[in-house]
Structure formats: C-alpha cells, structure tokens
Design a protein around this nucleic acid. Structure first.
Length: 398
DNA sequence: CATCCACAGGAATGAACGGTTT
DNA sequence: AAACCGTTCATTCCTGTGGATG
C-alpha cells in the first residue's frame, strides 16, 4: 500500500535500521565473525583435503552454547564448498540440528533431504514412513550421483540418543556403501564429557581432530555487538549501552547469542517506551526478558505433565528457599496435588522420574545423587537451575 | 552379618499416530 | 486396502543400592 499519507502507523522505525542483523538465525558475512580467527583456520586445515576431492578429517568441536561453534562450522563449510567448486570438485554440506532430529532415522532423513534435488536425481526422500535402512540407501545413491565430497555437520551431537548414525557415517566409505563420494563429519557438542560415552570404534574415527571453543570475553562480546550495531539507526545507541551489555554477558556466561538477544530486547524496550535512544538502564530489563523468553522457548512443546512436574519443583523451591534440592518423592507428592487441581490423572512415579531426567538433560534442573539413612538406600535430589519465580510465571501463563 | 526399606533405573511391552509402499 | 515403518508416551515388572538396625 504505497504512498498513503496518514499518521496512524509509523513508517520509519525510529530505533532499528536493519533488525535482521540481530536475529539469531542471521549468519554474519565475511569479516563479521569476531574473535574466532584461530578456530576458523584450524577448522579449515582439517577439512582442506576436500578441495582436491580427498577425504576431509573428521572433526569434533566442543564449547559452551553461544561460543560460535555452529557459526564457524557453517562458515568454513560454505567457504570449502565454494573453493572446491573453483577447483572443479562438486562438494556440499548438510547441517543437522540433533536437538530437533534426535533419532537416527530423522537425522538421516534430514541429511538425505538437504543434499537431494529430486529433479536431478529422481530420488524422493519422504518425511517419514520409510525404514531407516531405506533412508540410508537413498542417501548413498544421492551422494554418489551428485557429489565428490560432502561435509556433514551434526550440531548438538550429544542430544542424539544413538551412536548408530555415527557408525554408519564413519564406515560408509570402507563398507563400500558409497564409492565416488568422500564424506567428512563435523560433530558439535557442548558437553565435554560427550566423548566418554561414545562407542570406542566411533571415537577413533570421528575424533581425528578436536577443538575447544572458549567462551567469549567482555572485549570480544563488545566487538561482536559493535559489528552488528548498524542494526540500529545512527546515534540511537548510548555509548555505554554495548559495554554494559557485554560486561553483563561476559560475567554470566560468555554466550554471544544471549548477548545479542539482550541487545535486541533493549532496543525493543526503548521502542515501546518511546525513548529516542537505547539507554543503559534498558539492558538490565532486557536481560530479564531474555531469561523468561529463553525459558519459554525451552519448554515449548513439552507435554502438560512434563510442565506439572516442573511446576511442582518451582512451588517447592518458592516455599522452601535455600534448600539444596528436593527428593523425588517430595516432588511427586506435589505433582500429584497439581494433577488433582488440574483434574487430570497423575502419571506413574516411574514416568515422573524419567520426566525429571529429561529436564536435567536440558539443564533446566540439576540432579544430585545421595545415599544414606536407614531404609533410604540411594536417592536423587532435584534442584531448579532457573529462577523459580520465572518458571512459575511462565508455566501458569495459560 | 543378614535384613530391611525407599528409592533408582533397565527392560519389555503396547497403544496411538502419521506417514509410505505395493 | 492392507502391510509396513518409526516415534512418542506411558505402564508394569524387576533387579540394584546402601547404610542403620536389630
């Protein structure tokens, strides 16, 4: 609707000039990745052979969330594909978020689907309905048909509930499943201990190279935010805003994603307050909003009972502050009463134990094992890692 | 030193569901 | 239309665990 001149809507955003720069999905272009130069060149040497159509080294990357692991992996892979193309080698890479595709079948499906082009190959990769081995067979066919080299990035590899896919991928060449195509795996994990529970055979082949990404320090975070500051209009950012946000984020976690979230929220708060500039004080409010948003995202899609369990724990933490956790039976009692209140049948104790374990895996709660006392054997205590107030608020929203 | 209790967690099972294939 | 296939959510049964108690 062009050129209408009423003042009902603001047509010029007073704060943001280019907000996409602050979206999590936004991939910074060349020269916009800050403070990861060493990591990038290390990665590049590891996968370098692919340019000549040889097998790239398999790589495992460790590092906490928001340290630029997937960013660098994607960046290097893209550059590799481009460079290989200049050398006349057809290469591609596939990115799998194992937090979403937790099972072997789903992961293979995503890989096959993302490297496929059914117009060229004539191979169809349906979303579901096929057996795992069928997906593999189609994947190998596609790869042999189309590519000389393929890189497979497995992000959050520790969320995978099986090692099977790693086995298959690492042995694909040897077992003669693929003949014309070389395959490299880049695994990304934020749990250092992940390697310990890996199958021995997989470990030796997958961990040819290992890199650890350290958290960003305050200076790097500031550079990262500076690099994206043209998301805002000129002069809108107070000079102290970014340093404040960087200091806050560095002290707490060194997570670049969270830091950028905070910056974006600060801008949105300025917007809704009608403030002409993004003031330093908005940063603190933004941090709180970032927290609740992150938590809401974390439990999105979880079943009602999974929430009740969490709610039970939140209630316990609120009424008994400064306790180092609550044992399963206590949580279960409260959970049962919440169920009665909600008018739904409660699940078995066994099931609730599993639900608690799932939350522990997502770092929403922390579990600790204890033993002692007469007739107590071993038991587990659960403690909320999030702010109980936030948890209760989000869970009782609707 | 065997017993006991309250809890942990593995294994087997199955129903419901949404999809493909032939 | 019937046969398959994988996933998720849940239950039931069963075997460990470990320190105080008699």
């Amino acid at each position: 609707m062009p050129e209408a001149t009423d003042d009902l809507f603001t047509r010029e955003d007073p704060i943001f000039a280019n907000k996409e720069l602050l979206e999590i999905s936004h991939l910074p272009g060349e020269g916009r990745i800050v403070g990861r130069d060493n990591e990038i060149s290390d990665l590049a040497t590891a996968v370098n052979p692919a340019i000549f159509g040889q097998s790239p080294s398999n790589v495992l990357i460790y590092g906490k969330t928001g340290t630029g692991k997937s960013l660098c992996a994607k960046y290097v892979s893209q550059r590799l594909v481009d460079t290989a193309g200049e050398e006349g080698v057809t290469a591609t890479f596939a990115y799998v978020d194992c937090a979403q595709d937790t099972t072997e079948t789903q992961a293979v499906q995503t890989i096959a689907d993302s490297v496929n082009d059914s117009e060229i190959t004539g191979i169809k990769v349906p979303d579901k309905g096929l057996s795992t081995s069928t997906y593999y067979k189609r994947l190998w066919r596609i790869l042999d048909q189309r590519f000389n080299v393929v890189l497979i990035i497995l992000d959050e590899i520790d969320k995978l509930d099986d090692d099977d896919i790693l086995m298959q991928l690492s042995r694909a060449g040897e077992a003669g499943k693929i003949t014309d195509c070389k395959l490299g795996v880049i695994g990304i994990s934020n749990k250092i201990q992940y390697k310990d529970r890996m199958d021995e055979r997989v470990k030796s082949s997958l961990c040819e190279r290992e890199f650890v990404f350290p958290p960003y320090d305050a200076n790097q975070l500031r550079d990262i935010m500076d690099a994206r500051s043209d998301a805002f209009r000129d002069g809108v950012l107070d000079s102290s805003t970014i340093p404040r946000a960087a200091a806050l984020a560095a002290r707490e976690h060194g997570d670049a994603r969270k830091a950028i979230d905070i910056l974006r929220y600060a801008g949105e708060i300025a917007q809704s307050n009608g403030s002409p500039t993004v003031k330093e004080v908005f940063v603190t409010q933004a941090r709180e909003r970032a927290e609740t948003d992150r938590f809401r995202e974390l439990i999105r899609g979880s079943t009602p009972h999974s929430r009740y369990v969490l709610q039970a724990l939140a209630l316990l933490s609120l009424s008994n502050s400064h306790k180092d956790g609550f044992r399963t039976s206590r949580v279960y009692e409260i959970y049962e009463s919440i169920c009665r209140q909600e008018g739904s049948d409660s699940l078995s104790l066994r099931r609730v134990r599993d639900l608690l374990k799932e939350h522990a895996f997502l770092d929403i709660i922390e579990q600790s094992k204890h033993s002692g006392g007469s007739a107590e054997g071993s038991y587990t205590k659960h403690q909320l890692l999030e702010d109980p107030g936030v948890v209760k608020e989000v869970l009782t929203e609707n």
